[in-house]
Amino acid sequence: MLKGHQSWIFENRPAILSTGTIGGPFEAKGNIPEAFDTLHEDMWLNQDSWEKAQQKMLEEAIQTTLKKARIEKENIEFLIAGDLINQMTPTSFAASTSSIPFLGAFSACATSMESLALAASIINAKGANYILCAASSHNAATEKQFRYPTEYGGQKPPTSQWTVTGAGCALVAQNGTGPAVTSATIGKVADMGMTDPFNMGGAMAIAAADTIEAHLRDLQIDPSYYDLIITGDLGHVGREVSFDLLRDRNIPIESEKYVDCGITIYREDQPVLAGGSGAACSAIVTYGHYLQEVIKGNLQRILVVATGSLHSTLSIQQKAPIPCIAHAVSIEARGEHL
């Protein structure tokens, strides 16, 4: 049901039945290794290209999710997924091997919440019984496409971020015992004329702030309604900018209740500069870490605001600004009602 300008309320409370999270070696050394179902020692995953390794991780995430829910893939109506690689081929190939009817979704690093919002919306309207939603990224494949070859020695500024190697997948269903997806807010594309691809956090912060503000306005709630507001991959710079923006707009947000997946995923002493990023970042940290906290009962209500910068290498070279987006999805423990 539409609420306000750009939000949906899911009154049938679609459930997240299970999740699957896969990570690479760098993530294994990170802050939340327990958030992963499988951690790979090898960046290549025995494949002959980074892109195939990414495809493999997505396939594994899908398989793990299905296995944990004890549901056969024939029962899944749709797969909604996306990634960052040109034309999303790793996702398309993974969708091909899983042979589930497939909808591609692209919001760069906000793909995780775009796919979850769409899945919940379809389930809520009884358009399906089971939908898988997923996002993946691979550090080396992303570096190769967007920046420089992996082994190229270029000094990165302190505002740049480290793309997460991994995949995260969630199974959304009509009913079940898992946490409920209760509402979603679809963000507008924000363009503040920022052109530095090594400062995506700073560029995306405005999108996160806009979407959070729109969500609170549409649902007519206070930030204190949520135990945690989790942004996707703003990193240290973007988190601070978005936090100060919200405070400037008189939104009473609290610092300890405002966290970022890109900061959560890695340890402070890892060389990630401003923090983690990539489509897998918010998917893994949300599904593997914060959702588990909701299941354990440590958190009751969370708002996940995945952020994406929608530039391409072509648009950057043509000196076009970076368009940014953020989508918010609220997840609540069972038994709670809006």
Partner: peptide, 21 residues
């Protein structure tokens, strides 16, 4: 070429940006 709100945001952002040492 930037709109006033874009200029304001960029200045706001720049204050919080980690500078290159």
């Amino acid at each position: 070429k930037l709109q006033p709100n874009q200029q304001r945001y960029q200045a706001f952002q720049q204050k919080r940006e980690t500078k290159r040492p």
